[in-house]
Lab assay of single mutants.
Amino acid sequence: MTEYKLVVVGAGGVGKSALTIQLIQNHFVDEYDPTIEDSYRKQVVIDGETCLLDILDTAGQEEYSAMRDQYMRTGEGFLCVFAINNTKSFEDIHHYREQIKRVKDSEDVPMVLVGNKCDLPSRTVDTKQAQDLARSYGIPFIETSAKTRQGVDDAFYTLVREIRKHKEKMSKDGKKKKKKSKTKCVIM
Rank of each mutant, 00 (worst) to 15 (best):
E63W: 01
E63I: 03
E63F: 02
E63Y: 05
E63S: 07
E63K: 05
Y64L: 06
Y64S: 11
Y64R: 08
S65Y: 08
S65T: 08
A66E: 12
M67D: 07
M67L: 10
R68Y: 05
R68W: 04
R68V: 03
R68M: 03
D69P: 03
D69G: 05
D69C: 02
Q70L: 10
Y71K: 08
Y71E: 14
M72Y: 13
R73F: 06
R73I: 06
R73S: 12
T74H: 12
T74K: 10
G75E: 02
G75M: 07
G75Y: 11
G75P: 03
E76H: 15
E76T: 15
G77M: 09
G77W: 00
G77S: 01
G77F: 03
F78R: 00
F78H: 01
L79E: 00
L79W: 02
L79I: 14
L79T: 00
C80R: 01
C80Q: 02
C80N: 02
C80M: 13
V81A: 08
V81H: 04
V81D: 01
V81G: 03
V81W: 00
V81C: 12
V81I: 13
F82P: 01
F82A: 14
F82S: 13
A83H: 13
A83F: 02
A83K: 07
A83I: 01
I84Y: 15
I84N: 15
I84R: 12
N86F: 01
N86Q: 03
N86T: 03
N86L: 01
T87G: 13
K88Q: 13
K88G: 12
S89R: 02
F90L: 13
F90H: 04
F90G: 05
F90A: 12
F90D: 04
F90Q: 06
D92F: 05
D92R: 05
I93R: 00
H94M: 14
H94W: 05
H95R: 13
H95F: 06
H95G: 05
Y96R: 02
Y96V: 14
R97K: 12
R97Q: 08
E98P: 01
E98V: 01
E98R: 04
Q99V: 13
I100M: 05
I100T: 03
I100K: 00
I100V: 07
K101W: 05
K101Y: 03
K101R: 11
K101C: 10
K101H: 06
R102D: 05
R102N: 08
V103E: 08
K104G: 06
K104D: 04
D105S: 10
D105R: 10
D105H: 05
S106G: 13
S106H: 06
S106N: 11
S106R: 10
S106Y: 11
E107Q: 06
E107A: 10
E107L: 12
D108N: 09
D108R: 05
V109A: 05
V109T: 04
V109I: 10
V109Y: 08
V109D: 01
V109W: 05
P110D: 01
P110Y: 01
P110S: 03
P110K: 01
P110F: 03
P110T: 03
M111W: 06
M111G: 00
M111C: 05
M111T: 03
V112R: 00
V112P: 00
V112S: 00
V112C: 02
V112Y: 02
L113V: 09
L113S: 01
V114H: 00
V114S: 01
G115W: 05
G115L: 09
N116L: 15
N116Q: 14
K117R: 14
K117I: 15
K117E: 13
K117W: 14
C118S: 11
C118A: 10
C118Q: 05
D119P: 03
D119K: 03
D119Y: 04
L120Y: 15
L120F: 13
L120K: 12
L120W: 10
L120A: 11
L120I: 07
P121Y: 10
P121L: 09
P121R: 08
S122A: 10
S122K: 08
R123N: 13
T124Q: 12
T124C: 10
T124I: 08
T124G: 12
T124A: 12
D126P: 05
D126M: 06
D126H: 05
D126F: 07
